Simulated assay, not measured.
Amino acid sequence: MKLALFDLDNTLLTGDSDFEWAQFLISKGVLDREVHEAKNQKFYDHYKAGTLDIHAFLDFQLAPLSRHAREELDAWHREFMATRIRPMMTATAQALVRRHLEAGDLCAIVTATNSFVTGPICREFGIEHLVATIPAQQDGRFTGKPRGTPAFKDGKIERVEAWLESLGLWWGAFETSHFYSDSHNDLPLLAKVSHPVAVDPDDTLRVQALASGWPVISLRG
């Protein structure tokens, strides 16, 4: 058995679904442009720099979910998928996923972006398993807070291991394990798998990948 893990934002997608979700809500008038656009960009810049406070970011990103009914959120998400996400899904990325699925590998998207945003994207790629940050719910509504450890940096390893354990598996159950990512924030999980792959990497990850002899590929085609 082989394991194939995929980061989502700027890896399988040519952009960042978390950032785009906030921009989408701003464009709909759900969030105030003047207040939220600068904050959204600031958090994204901190993420790219490796200085993101994940809990402060989640307070910002999950709060809008708590202010609206799930039916309304789901309707917005369908529009978001059509206008923002599908244009960021390249044929090359879909072909990579398909090769692993057709080989019978156990596949999962592993992302810091919350599961409300990423669940439909995961299904669009045909991947059954999603390891993501979980937005807490109460009485059918989101609370605006995360549940459990965010799937970010070392938290990705913790969440992947919990998912594998739920399937009765562990790292040693696999002949090989791949993880595809663009970001230096994912260095902990990249170092954990047997076959790390840098995908259109940021500068820090590119340096690490070249120094370590990891493959560097592009899914932008």
Rank of each mutant, 00 (worst) to 15 (best):
Ile121Trp: 06
Phe174Pro: 09
Gly104Thr: 06
Trp21Tyr: 09
Leu169Trp: 05
Glu71Leu: 07
Thr92Gly: 10
Ala91His: 12
Leu12His: 02
Glu34Phe: 11
Ser27Tyr: 02
Leu96Glu: 15
Asn40His: 06
Lys145Met: 13
His100Ala: 11
Leu13Gly: 04
Ala112Lys: 00
Arg33Gln: 13
Ile217Phe: 02
Glu165Val: 05
Ser115His: 06
Leu101Tyr: 06
Glu20Gln: 11
Arg147Asp: 10
Arg123Thr: 12
Leu189Cys: 01
Glu20Leu: 15
Glu124Met: 08
Asp74Tyr: 00
Gly126Pro: 08
Val193Thr: 04
Phe152Ser: 05
Gln94Lys: 15
Thr14Gly: 14
Leu164Phe: 09
Ala132Asp: 04
Phe19Ser: 01
Lys48Gly: 15
Ser218Trp: 01
Ala151Cys: 15
Ala209Thr: 00
Ser115Cys: 12
Lys156Val: 13
Ile26Val: 15
Thr14Ile: 05
His184Phe: 13
Gly15Gln: 02
Val216Asn: 02
Thr51Arg: 11
Trp170Val: 05
Ala38Leu: 10
Ser17Val: 03
Ala209Ser: 03
Lys39Asp: 07
Phe179Gly: 07
Ala103Pro: 02
Asp9Tyr: 01
Val117Gly: 04
Glu158Gln: 14
Ala69Gly: 10
Ala95Met: 09
Ala82Leu: 11
Ala103His: 03
Thr143Asn: 08
Ala4Lys: 05
His36Phe: 14
Leu130Gly: 09
Leu101Asn: 08
Met1His: 10
Gly29Lys: 06
Ala95Pro: 07
Asp139Arg: 08
Trp170Leu: 09
Cys107Leu: 09
Trp171Thr: 07
Phe6Cys: 04
Glu72Asp: 10
Asp202His: 04
Gly140Arg: 07
Trp214Cys: 05
Arg86Glu: 11
Pro64Thr: 03
Met1Gly: 12
Ile127Phe: 09
Gln23Glu: 14
Arg206Tyr: 00
Thr113Arg: 01
Arg220Gln: 07
Gln138Arg: 14
Leu101Ala: 13
Ala95His: 12
Arg99Ile: 02
Ala95Arg: 14
Leu189Asn: 00
Arg98Lys: 15
Thr92Tyr: 03
His55Pro: 00
Ser177Thr: 12
Asp59Trp: 00
Thr204Met: 04
Val30Thr: 13
Ile121Val: 14
Leu187His: 00
His195Phe: 04
Asp9Ile: 01
Cys107Tyr: 02
Gly29Thr: 08
Trp163Met: 13
Asp105Ala: 13
Asn40Ser: 13
Thr176Trp: 06
Arg147Leu: 15
Gln61Glu: 13
Glu20Phe: 07
Gly221Phe: 00
Ala49Asn: 13
Ala95Glu: 14
Val131Tyr: 03
Pro135Met: 08
Gln41Ala: 15
Leu5Phe: 11
Leu5Trp: 02
Lys192Leu: 10
Ile121His: 08
